[in-house]
Design a protein around this nucleic acid. Sequence first.
DNA 1: ACTACACTTGAACAACTGTTCAAGTGTAGG
DNA 2: CCTACACTTGAACAGTTGTTCAAGTGTAGT
Lengths: 117, 117
Amino acid sequence: MSESLTCAYQFVHEETVNALQAKILPSSTLNDLGEFFKVFGDPSRLKILTLLQHAELCVCDLAALVDMSISAVSHQLKILRQFRLIRSRREGKNVFYALADDHVLTLITQALTHLSE
Amino acid sequence: MSESLTCAYQFVHEETVNALQAKILPSSTLNDLGEFFKVFGDPSRLKILTLLQHAELCVCDLAALVDMSISAVSHQLKILRQFRLIRSRREGKNVFYALADDHVLTLITQALTHLSE
DNA sequence: ACTACACTTGAACAACTGTTCAAGTGTAGG
DNA sequence: CCTACACTTGAACAGTTGTTCAAGTGTAGT
């Protein structure tokens, strides 16, 4: 940050900066929030989520629908599970997945609205 | 996808899969949506966005606040600009940045709500 | 014109992400 | 208990991302 020395310590609007310093979210919050948004940052995961909106699906059906290998889908499902966006339920040899709650879709819908403006 | 051959073409719930096939969002939409969410997937960018909520800021002040080099901040601002999340305005030697619209924050707030549940 | 400040930009480089591949677990049927 | 199916998992590998560094543009003052 050598280039910013003059700017940061001499010509910066001190009052403005000092006033805002207190409003900065804790870095743990910013990190968690970032990780959360990253989950939605992948088309495959978005595809899976929007599909689960309509029905509870097993890994096999999901793989067929999103046109990915079962392994790849399973890896993504693990991530979605870790963030509690989906829930799994075993029924015999199959494992069925469903959305954990509805306001996951609210977020996606809202982003879609923003994009179409 | 050799491992999924049996599953995908023999034991899949054909009716379920066929019915959902039509509900899959176009890949262009899924890609755009993914790119959009990726922008929110970085703590630095989130920090910048939440700061601009409170005031219009020049690059220099922002760099001081987020504790990053001016160059790094400028790179991130470029991305935020490309997605029309922020607007820039030159005033003499300074360039001031502001949020393009408010419902960018609605999205962040909503994600925060989800995290604290 | 020349210098200084404020910012931008492109290239390079390390760190991270998503897929594949190979090997594993768990369940049902014979 | 052996095989087959449904899925999971770890390692590896290519592609992507965010930062730094160096060089650039634009504006103001002298």
